[in-house]
Deep mutational scan, measured.
Amino acid sequence: ESFERTINIAKGNSSLGMTVSANKDGLGMIVRSIIHGGAISRDGRIAIGDCILSINEESTISVTNAQARAMLRRHSLIGPDIKITYVP
């Protein structure tokens, strides 16, 4: 059984350190890789294959690959914290 989780990740000045791609069925974006030493890796809660539904409350539903990457990059630049809703 999968259910949504919303977490805050304190990334400070470091990068999030993950790559994503659009989910084929349009439901959010899938975590493709996690870079060791990045904020996601240090936090430890998000794993490869998890589905991200929103970043800082901006929905990732029906985004393209390019939009998913641009959204991740944009939110990575805002502030020291990032809020991610995902399904493990």
Results as ranks from 00 to 15, higher is better:
R45Q: 03
L27D: 15
H75M: 15
E58L: 04
I30M: 09
D81I: 10
S2E: 08
A68Y: 05
D43S: 03
I48G: 02
R5N: 08
S76K: 06
L27F: 13
A68W: 08
S14T: 13
D81R: 07
R73M: 10
R32K: 14
V31F: 03
G37R: 05
G12V: 09
G37S: 07
M71V: 13
G49Y: 01
R5V: 10
G44M: 02
M29L: 14
V20N: 00
S2W: 06
M18S: 02
H36L: 10
I9T: 04
E58F: 05
S59M: 05
R73K: 13
R45T: 04
A68N: 00
I84G: 03
L53M: 12
S41E: 15
A68I: 09
R45S: 04
S41R: 06
I78K: 14
A22G: 09
T60W: 06
N23W: 02
V87C: 10
V20A: 08
I55W: 00
L77S: 12
I48N: 07
F3D: 09
S21E: 14
S41A: 14
R69H: 12
S54I: 04
K11T: 13
I7C: 04
C51G: 04
L53I: 11
Q67A: 09
S2H: 12
P88D: 04
T64M: 02
K24F: 07
V87W: 07
I40T: 05
R73Q: 13
I78L: 15
I55P: 03
M18K: 00
M71I: 15
P88I: 00
P80K: 15
R45F: 05
L53R: 10
Y86M: 05
N23K: 11
N23Y: 06
K11W: 04
N56Q: 05
I7D: 00
V20Q: 04
S15A: 14
V20M: 14
R74C: 06
I61W: 08
A66I: 08
R73F: 11
I78W: 09
G17P: 01
I34P: 02
S54K: 15
M71W: 06
I34Y: 01
I40N: 01
I61H: 15
Y86K: 00
N65E: 13
F3C: 13
V87G: 01
K24T: 12
I84V: 08
S41W: 14
I52G: 00
G12K: 12
S59L: 06
I34A: 00
S41N: 11
K83M: 06
L53Y: 07
A39Y: 04
V31E: 01
K83P: 04
R45V: 02
I40P: 01
L77G: 14
M71K: 05
T19P: 01
A70F: 06
T19Q: 11
A22F: 03
I35D: 15
E58A: 05
R32Q: 14
R69N: 15
A68L: 06
G38T: 03
N65L: 06
F3W: 09
N65Q: 11
T64N: 10
F3Q: 10
S62R: 13
D25K: 14
D25C: 09
G79A: 09
V31P: 02
V63G: 05
I35W: 08
N56R: 02
G44L: 02
L77A: 15
I61A: 14
N13S: 12
I78F: 13
K83Y: 05
I61N: 10
P80C: 11
S2A: 09
L77Q: 15
A39D: 06
N13Y: 11
I82D: 04
I46P: 00
L72A: 05
S21L: 08
I7V: 08
S15K: 14
L27T: 14
N56F: 00
K11F: 08
R45N: 07
A68T: 04
S59C: 07
G49K: 02
R74L: 05
E58K: 06
G12S: 08
R74T: 08
T60P: 04
L77K: 13
E57H: 11
S62D: 15
E58S: 05
I34M: 06
I48P: 13
P80T: 14
T60G: 05
S62K: 14
N8A: 10
I40S: 04
S14N: 15
K11C: 12
A22N: 10
I35F: 10
A39F: 02
A39S: 06
G44D: 04
I30R: 09
N8D: 09
T19K: 11
S62N: 15
L53C: 06
E58T: 06
I52H: 01
S15P: 14
I82G: 02
G79Q: 08
Y86S: 00
H75A: 15
R45P: 00
T85K: 13
S59A: 08
D81N: 15
I55H: 00
V63T: 10
S33E: 13
G49V: 01
L72D: 04
S14A: 13
I52E: 03
S14F: 12
V87T: 10
I78N: 14
S14V: 12
M29K: 00
G38S: 07
D25Y: 11
T64H: 02
I7L: 05
P88T: 08
D50Q: 03
M18P: 04
L72R: 01
S59Q: 10
R74V: 06
A39R: 05
R42T: 10
T19E: 12
H75E: 08
G12L: 07
L77Y: 10
A10M: 10
R5L: 08
L16N: 03
N56D: 06
N8W: 14
D50M: 00
R5Q: 13
G37D: 10
T6M: 05
S14K: 13
C51T: 14
L16V: 07
G44K: 07
G26A: 05
N13H: 13
M29E: 04
Y86D: 03
R45G: 03
E4F: 13
A47M: 10
I61M: 14
T60E: 01
I9C: 03
G17E: 01
G44H: 04
G17H: 02
I46K: 04
I46L: 14
A10C: 13
R74S: 08
T19D: 12
G37C: 04
S21I: 11
A10P: 13
A47T: 12
I61T: 12
S76T: 12
I35P: 05
N13E: 11
R74W: 06
M18G: 00
G37Y: 05
M18Q: 00
I7W: 00
A39V: 09
S41I: 05
A66R: 13
H36F: 09
V87M: 10
I82C: 15
S54P: 00
I61L: 15
I55K: 03
V63M: 15
I61K: 15
S14H: 14
I61S: 12
L16D: 01
S76D: 15
G28A: 00
N8S: 14
Y86R: 01
H36V: 13
L53V: 12
E57Y: 07
K24V: 11
I9L: 06
G12Q: 10
D50C: 01
A70R: 13
V20Y: 04
I34E: 02
H36Q: 14
H75R: 06
E58V: 06
N56K: 00
G17T: 03
I30F: 06
T64C: 06
M71H: 05
C51F: 05
S59G: 05
A68H: 00
I52T: 02
I52M: 01
G44I: 00
E1L: 09
S33A: 08
E57L: 05
T6L: 03
G49Q: 01
S33K: 13
R73S: 12
V31N: 03
L16T: 03
H36D: 15
L72Y: 04
V63D: 05
S21Y: 10
Y86T: 02
